[in-house]
Simulated scan of single mutants.
Amino acid sequence: MSRTSNSIFGPMMMVGLTFALGALAAYREPEGMIAFLIAAFFLPVAWTIIEIAKRKEERNERFYENQASIRWSISAAGFLMAVPLAFTLVISFGITEALGDDLEKRIMGVLFGIIFLLYGNAAPKRPIALQDAGCSPQRMQAQARFAGRMFVLTGLAYTLIWALAPISWALPVAMGVLLAGTVIVMASAVRLHRSRK
């Protein structure tokens, strides 16, 4: 049995956390209840559907690699959802009222940039199923490392812009940086895909 088949604790923890935060946010902020309930139920439902759909597959090495990749993605998605939900709750309890709207926006921007940076650092380390890659494992890993570095740089730039730039142009500049980094990664992935044909 593959060692990757035991990686269930992380996604379970993140699914539970996002469910709890989403449910609490729906209770605290009734005007946004639908969005918060969607956030609460999305990961548990999505993960359950995926696990049910995969239960009849043959339990070979590829199955466990795919399972580990899916569970890593669920954990990452949970983290990306949990941080803004947690900060929304902090705001709803009035803890940040003294900060003012501008500082709240800065904190949210910096948090998102840090999340993006952490995702870029972790993404190349996740398991990749290489059997059907259509190209060498070295090229697949090189692409993953390139994407990770780009996301780290993009997240760092995004964080610094929100931390230091005038608030009036922080959002458009930060979004431009985020879009540019994402487009570069996508272009690199498309180039790799074309080279496999």
Rank of each mutant, 00 (worst) to 15 (best):
M1T: 12
S2M: 01
S2E: 10
S2K: 05
R3T: 11
N6Y: 14
I8N: 13
I8A: 15
G10A: 15
M12F: 10
M14A: 15
M14K: 13
M14H: 05
V15H: 03
V15I: 15
G16Q: 11
G16N: 08
T18C: 06
T18W: 06
F19L: 13
F19S: 14
F19D: 06
A23C: 05
A23W: 15
A26T: 05
A26E: 11
Y27Q: 12
E29S: 02
E29V: 06
E29F: 00
P30V: 01
M33A: 15
M33N: 10
I34L: 14
I34A: 14
F36G: 08
I38N: 12
A39T: 10
A40P: 14
A40F: 08
A40M: 11
F41M: 15
F42L: 14
F42N: 07
F42G: 04
P44W: 04
P44S: 06
W47Q: 14
T48D: 01
T48E: 10
I50A: 13
E51C: 02
K56S: 12
K56P: 06
E57Y: 09
E58F: 00
N60W: 02
N60S: 07
E61M: 07
E65H: 09
N66E: 09
Q67P: 00
S69M: 15
S69A: 14
R71P: 07
W72M: 13
G78V: 13
V83Q: 11
P84L: 11
L85P: 10
A86D: 03
F87D: 06
L89V: 09
V90Q: 03
I91C: 15
I91H: 12
F93A: 04
I95T: 11
I95C: 02
E97G: 07
A98V: 05
L99I: 01
G100D: 05
D102N: 08
L103C: 03
L103F: 09
G109Y: 05
G109F: 00
L111K: 01
F112N: 08
F112R: 05
G113S: 08
I114M: 06
I115E: 15
F116Y: 12
L118Y: 06
G120Y: 10
N121C: 12
A122M: 12
A123P: 04
P124A: 04
K125F: 06
R126G: 15
R126N: 13
I128D: 11
A129I: 05
Q131T: 04
Q131I: 02
D132P: 03
A133L: 03
C135L: 01
P137D: 02
R139H: 05
M140L: 04
Q141Y: 13
Q143M: 07
Q143D: 09
A144Q: 03
A144L: 01
R149A: 05
R149N: 02
G155I: 13
A157I: 04
Y158S: 11
Y158E: 15
Y158D: 15
T159N: 10
I161D: 08
I167R: 10
I167C: 10
S168C: 05
S168R: 08
W169N: 08
L171P: 06
A174G: 03
G176E: 10
V177S: 12
L179D: 01
I184R: 00
I184S: 04
I184L: 11
M186A: 12
S188M: 03
A189Q: 02
A189W: 00
V190M: 04
R191H: 07
H193K: 01
K197H: 06
K197G: 02
K197L: 00
